[in-house]
Amino acid sequence: MKIESVFAKAKKEGRGVLVGFVTAGDPSPDHTLDIVSALVSNGVDIIELGIPFSDPIADGPTIQASSLRALNAGITPPNVLDIADEVSSSLNVPVVLLTYYNPIFRMGEGKFLKLASKAGVSGVVVPDLPPEESREYRRIARKENIDTIYLATPSTTPKRLDAIVSATRGFLYVVPLYGVTGAREAFDSYSKKVVKDIASKVRGRVPIAVGFGISKPEHVRSFVAQGADSVIVGSAIVKTIERNLSDRKTMLRELGELARDLSSACRNGKSV
């Protein structure tokens, strides 16, 4: 399924798009499809599947720990592509892969993107691949019909933001703070201003999805009110998994509740 059509549909309905992140294979590969189903059936619009990496430098302790659990469970990038295939063929949602660059580089950009396309992947986020270094990657991704999603942060200069927006497809991943991933208690006015500024600069060119730190419905409402087309929730989901490692039933129920709360916040954010 195309990312574009999800955003178009949500726009028509006057709501924000909810992107949910899980580390593929955490706590074990046979959990992932159930986890993703629980999220999707409770309102998550786009699934972001993380390929676990040994050295996740953009991630805080929560996702570091989940990457480690998944790696210890023996998951590999080809396994993640299989899971992506299952998700995209059994659930009607776009699948976005999030991976550090080295696993792609090791497999080869061409091979990785070809397999991802075959697995029904709609987009890929590579936090440590700068747009300046990925012209060839983008060319292959376009050929394989995969959106290349870039990140913008508070330190992105206006000129560079413009170049990033031109290169990004699907959506622009906006990080509203200086820092790494991980659930935050609250966001200060600075983060809201960052989102508002970027939203006004890129309006009409590409949808923006705000991620890093978002864990509560009030965060969702406030960023949607600042002009975000979408929010990405990762660590809050992963923490729910971590809290219930030995109890799959409770894990899935709590994930469903979290997704439902966040999704309803996406719906009423616009009116705040």
Partner: peptide, 10 residues
């Protein structure tokens, strides 16, 4: 050059 496994894990 990096010491890594066949999947690019360090």
């Amino acid at each position: 050059y990096v010491l890594q496994d066949e999947y690019g894990q360090i």
